[in-house]
Each structure stands twice: as structure tokens, then as C-alpha cells.
């Protein structure tokens, strides 16, 4: 079995699905001849030709609009936005058209399309290359928002996203593109969507994280284990619609929950999970629900991004805070 990084797993999934399904096309800026800004589509144009791997002009609204058009005709476009910060011109298409097409046509049209975007900070890039605005998409009914946290999940979830009959926003945490490798068999087995993955079992506190933050959160859980705190770690994976049942079940067991997110603090997915727990889990909670997040500021430049992003220490500290309640 090959050992692959997250970005290589993305390429493998794209390659697999293009080979399996002739309706799958890839489009975006520099995805063809250049192989993609992060090399996600490296070699695919050579393999499948420029009719199926399209270099587009620098026009995100057009990339999204073209994908919608293709999808209405039964194709399965997989669009790439170079950085999540560049998606804003395409929001009118994605939020205003793609998310609503099924509803608007009363089910007559649906859009089997995927919009892939590298997202999140930690690579010393400018602010609009570093932010985490998944809440914008999660707040829009009709979109599925999926974030893999390791190479296996990138492969399995991207396959599922492409096969899904409706639009999926596939956010790739670029900081962990190459941080670990997984042995991945190219068996075409898709992972289930709309479900959390429990990565570590524990009794004292439930961590919920997604994307790159899973890396720090698992390290924090290991650190806490040495202090005698048993942490359960849940990878949200599908950020919208998210699997609240798994989280509730875990929090009913542990009585404490800390949510870790890279995004700004206010109005985010972390806040939403905390609200669900307050409504549905109150009687099981021993401590207030904790959040470890970025701050309500524009993502800072390289020198400060380490302070902005939740660190292992900040995550562990928040867990110690909720552990003070008994």
C-alpha cells in the first residue's frame, strides 16, 4: 500500500473517480498544465486530457457558474478555488444558485458538484490566504461542508463528496497537507458523510474539532492523559449538516465538552455546537461548554499566526478549566 500525505490522497481520489466515472471533470485556475497551486491535480491533465481537466481564467464566479451549468446537465464537476480567501466572487453562484437549485426546481435539478478549497492558516501566508470561513457555507442550507483531518479521510470523504448528488464544499486544511502520511489502498471505498468520527475514546471530557485542529487536539489529549485526564476526541468531518447525535452521546458520557476551531470566535460552527449542547445536553453537563478558537480579528500575518491559532497548550488549558468542575 502506498503511504500518502493528505494532498496526495486528494490527488489519488480525484484520479480514482475520474477513471471510474467519465462524467467527472476538474476545473480551476492552474489545475491543468501547472498541476494546481498545491499540486492537487498534478498529472491529471496528462492522463485525462484537457477536455476533462480545464484550466480556467482567473474568475472564481465563472468557475462556480460553469460548474453549476455542467452539473445541471449530469456532469460531475470538481472545481478548485486556489485559496478559500478567493471564493468571495463565487459566493453569489454558490450561495445564491448552487445551494438552492434542488429546492428552486422542486427536485427536478440537483447539482452533483464539488468545490474544493485549501483553507485555514499556519503556513505564513497573507491573511486572506489563511482564514477559516466555513461558517459562511455551513450557514447556507443546501450545501454540504466537508473537512478531512487526515490522508485517509481526504481520500474517503472526497470520493463521497464527488458521488454525492448535491453540492459539497470540500475544505482542505492546507497546513496539514504534508504533516503525516497514511497507508491508503486505492480501493474506491468512500467514507460516510454527515457523521463524526470518534478518534479517541475517553471518559472525562469530549473534544470536538475538525480539519487541521484535529492535529493539535489529539496532541492535547495525549498531554492530558499524562495528567490522568481521559479525553474523547471527535472529528466533526462533515461540518454541515453535522452529526450532533454522536457529540451528544459523548457529552452525556463525559459531562464536559471543549470545542476547538481555527475560525474567529463569534458566529462560528463551534458556537453552534455549544448552543446545541446547551439545549439538548444541559442535564448532563458538569461544566460550561468550552471553546478554543481564533479571535474576532482578521487573521494576522506570519509572525502572529501561531498566537492566533489554537495551540496544544491553549486546548489543554481549556480542558483543565472544565475539569475544575466536578
Amino acid at each position: 500500500m502506498p503511504t500518502l500525505t493528505l494532498i496526495e490522497a486528494v490527488t489519488l481520489a480525484l484520479d480514482h473517480e475520474m477513471g471510474r466515472d467519465k462524467e467527472v471533470v476538474i476545473l480551476g485556475e492552474d489545475v491543468g498544465r501547472n498541476g494546481g497551486v498545491f499540486r492537487a491535480t498534478d498529472g491529471l491533465q496528462d492522463k485525462y486530457g484537457d477536455q476533462r481537466v480545464l484550466d480556467t481564467p482567473l474568475a472564481e464566479a465563472m468557475i462556480a457558474g460553469l460548474s453549476i451549468g455542467m452539473a445541471t446537465q449530469g456532469m460531475k464537476p470538481v472545481a478548485e478555488i486556489q485559496f478559500m480567501g478567493f471564493v468571495f466572487p463565487a459566493l453569489n453562484q454558490i450561495l445564491g444558485a448552487a445551494a438552492r437549485m434542488r429546492n428552486r426546481t422542486r427536485g427536478r435539478l440537483h447539482l452533483p458538484m464539488v468545490v474544493r478549497m485549501p483553507y485555514g492558516g499556519g503556513i505564513h501566508a497573507p491573511e486572506h490566504h489563511s482564514e477559516s470561513t466555513e461558517a459562511i457555507f455551513a450557514h447556507t442550507p443546501g450545501l454540504r461542508v466537508v473537512v478531512p483531518s487526515n490522508p485517509s479521510r481526504a481520500y474517503g470523504l472526497l470520493l463521497a463528496a464527488i458521488r454525492d448528488p448535491d453540492p459539497v464544499i470540500f475544505l482542505e486544511p492546507k497546513r496539514i497537507y504534508r504533516i503525516v502520511k497514511h497507508e491508503i489502498e486505492d480501493d474506491g471505498e468512500a467514507y460516510p458523510l454527515d457523521t463524526c468520527f470518534v478518534d479517541r475514546q475517553g471518559d472525562d471530557v469530549t473534544f470536538v474539532a475538525w480539519g487541521a485542529m484535529m492535529h493539535e487536539t489529539l496532541l492535547a489529549a495525549e498531554m492530558l492523559a499524562k495528567e490522568g485526564v481521559s479525553a474523547e476526541v471527535i472529528d466533526l468531518a462533515t461540518v454541515a449538516p453535522y452529526d450532533v447525535e454522536t457529540i451528544i452521546e459523548s457529552v452525556e458520557k463525559t459531562g464536559r465538552c471543549v470545542i476547538v476551531a481555527e475560525a474567529v470566535r463569534t458566529g462560528g460552527v463551534a458556537s453552534d455546537i455549544a448552543a446545541e449542547l446547551a439545549e439538548r445536553c444541559l442535564l448532563s453537563l458538569i461544566a460550561p461548554v468550552g471553546r478554543v478558537t481564533g479571535y474576532d480579528t482578521i487573521m494576522p500575518y506570519a509572525k502572529l499566526e501561531g498566537r492566533y491559532l489554537p495551540s496544544v497548550d491553549r486546548i489543554a488549558d481549556e480542558a483543565r478549566k472544565v475539569m475544575a468542575f466536578s
Partner: peptide, 17 residues
């Protein structure tokens, strides 16, 4: 140099799913 974009952390550690 394909493995370098940004100051991205690169690891060789193989983890099991």
C-alpha cells in the same frame, strides 16, 4: 521542490487510520 508551498510543515511519520 514540489513538496514546498508556504512554510508548510512536512512530516514523514506514517500514522494508522
Amino acid at each position: 521542490a514540489a513538496s514546498v508551498v508556504g512554510a508548510m510543515e512536512v512530516g514523514d511519520q506514517i500514522k494508522a487510520e
